[in-house]
Nucleic acid binder design. Structure first.
Lengths: 335, 335
DNA sequence: TTGTAGGCGTTATCAC
DNA sequence: GTGATAACGCCTACAA
């Protein structure tokens, strides 16, 4: 194993062909005789040749990198999205450039433009709430970069995305609780920075309204998509003079927090309290296969199939602690 | 905002200087008059210039990318390490190339070599168990690439690393349980693929031995660093004719699993059962500051400071569910 | 302090 | 099918 990197011209010399021919083999182009190809491949193996990504990018305009623009307070969510994207990238011979960013960063647009101009990724994957930033989308369109949106707020015709009707799904979940006999149902919202937060709240209101149940503002707690919103939200709800008998958590992390707080207070779940949690990473799971076609038109997706929920590598185990106690209304209904 | 990328020569023309001068400003080199610098910077801003990473890499030999070679079954661990590395990279104007890999991948060495030769990262960060792969380390040394090891099995003089004496730390933790009066202490091990797993078991044995407590093989469960090892391990231990009164979990994920199983069985924790968990991501937290000096000699680190434990962005909240019930022996003792 | 020439390793174009 | 040659955008070396 040589400690110095072999170049394409060395491979060419070794195989007794022109540089361009090696390049053809490398890029799996047509019009290379089988004999030549084999000789070149042998030479590449002999010299353990690895093409320079920088040179290929400079000359060819492709970077062999897919950027994942990702902001989410939940480690599980990030982990699953990354794991899935990474796996698909490996299959395609592309590298994943994970770009977590701080939500609310003032220069997000500039950062993304820098990324594009500096790295020239072959494709970009967006997660909320960037999926809903008109300026970012416009910049991507202007540069003609391929991209897909995970869970955008709106379904836009012709734009590659993994979409779900959040309001309808949330309404389904609340309806499930109503069917169980609940009338006082608490709601812990997600971060207001995410468009889906309002949509889920709308679904909550819709279901109650359809069931002729009056919405009690005291039962609606403003939270964020994290564990602590669940703990504090649950505490606040249970401290009410008339506490709820069920709680809708706007994310699975919130649901886990609610569970923790409920346990802390000695409340049996389920029993005295029912909880449903909205599973965001289920949506993320769906984007993996479409990534294949990131350089081609990607079809929009509707609801996630139930069997895709929690389909991440070890998702079931990792989340068992939370889900063992969560009514799986979402999984049952979202489909 | 032009939709086409500006080049360095365009900036040079705009500023009325030579390309090389722009390059000097770009790389913050000395010997550029303040006036010239300002003019160049103005031109760069005007054209919203972003240098091509590919071109800089090809010509300069630097890629402005740091690779993070990471394998771990715990999302929290990965999340925290990535978050920390990313933050430091941003400060340094470098990008993070996260490279999760499948443990036990047969071609890991080849993959890493490909990474080096193709991307030429400016530095590499390794996490267990790659930190202990002699072939990988040798390859890195051969190529003269800077790298740091998080939690290697052995402390190697002169090799940049974030190290902790796992055996001593584990012994401390078990001693803590013994001090609480426990005599039958269960042990759920980590994956045998990690060198630290054996070291932690050795620490367990050592503490028992020093306390004149006979080691009962039935109390030692083979597991992995994940949640389910905790649930199944706990179930197995509690099913014994003489169950333990305390359990040592080889990782925090295992500890969380033990907790879940204990709850499931209606066992009060703490009370009937004490649990300690080994916190791996605490070690990871320590590597962040040294990253600054990744291109310079990096000093070895000893035990992690207690106040660095759980220092990740939202670590305390996210892990509250698990830790609210875990005796924090490790945090107290590791320092 | 600034500018000029040459090359980094690959791909695209256009011949052969 | 295969091969020369010119880019690609920037940095290193060496002048001026």
């Amino acid at each position: 194993m040589p400690s110095r990197k072999a170049t394409i011209s060395e491979v060419a010399a070794q195989a007794g062909v022109a540089i361009k021919t090696v390049s053809r083999v490398l890029n799996k182009e047509k019009y290379v005789s089988a004999a030549t190809r084999e000789r070149v491949e042998a030479a590449m193996a002999l010299l353990s040749f690895n093409p320079s990504a920088a040179a290929r990018t400079l000359a060819g305009g492709r970077s062999f990198q897919i950027a994942l623009i990702c902001d989410n307070p939940s480690p599980y969510y990030v982990y699953e999205v990354q794991a899935g994207v990474r796996a698909r990238c490996a299959e395609e011979g592309v590298r994943m450039l994970a770009q977590p960013y701080d939500r609310g960063a003032p220069n997000l647009l500039a950062d993304i433009i820098s990324l594009i101009d500096q790295v020239r990724p072959d494709g970009i994957i967006l997660t909320p709430p960037v999926t809903d930033r008109a300026d970012v989308i416009a910049a991507l369109d202007a540069r003609g970069i391929d991209y897909v949106c995970i869970s955008p707020a709106q379904k836009v015709k012709g734009r590659a995305a993994c979409y779900i009707d959040n309001q309808a799904a949330a309404a389904d979940m609340v309806q499930y609780l109503i069917d169980l006999g609940h009338k006082r149902i608490g709601f812990i919202s997600g971060d207001t920075g995410y468009a889906v937060s309002a949509q889920r709240l709308a679904g909550y209101r819709q279901a109650l309204s359809e069931a002729q149940i009056k919405v009690d503002p005291a039962l609606i707690i403003a939270g964020g998509y994290d564990f602590t919103s669940g703990t504090s939200g649950c505490a606040a709800l249970m401290a009410l003079a008339a506490p709820p008998t069920a709680i809708f958590a706007s994310s699975d992390d919130i649901a886990a927090g609610v569970l923790a707080a409920a346990h802390h207070k000695g409340i049996a779940v389920p029993g005295a309290l029912s909880i449903v949690g909205f599973d965001d990473s289920a949506l993320a799971a769906v984007v993996w296969p479409p990534l294949t076609t990131i350089r081609q038109p990607v079809r929009d997706l509707g609801y996630t199939a139930a069997d895709m929920l929690f389909s991440g590598p070890d998702a079931p185990q990792h989340r068992e602690l939370a889900y063992s106690l969560i009514e799986r209304a979402s999984a049952a209904k979202i489909n």
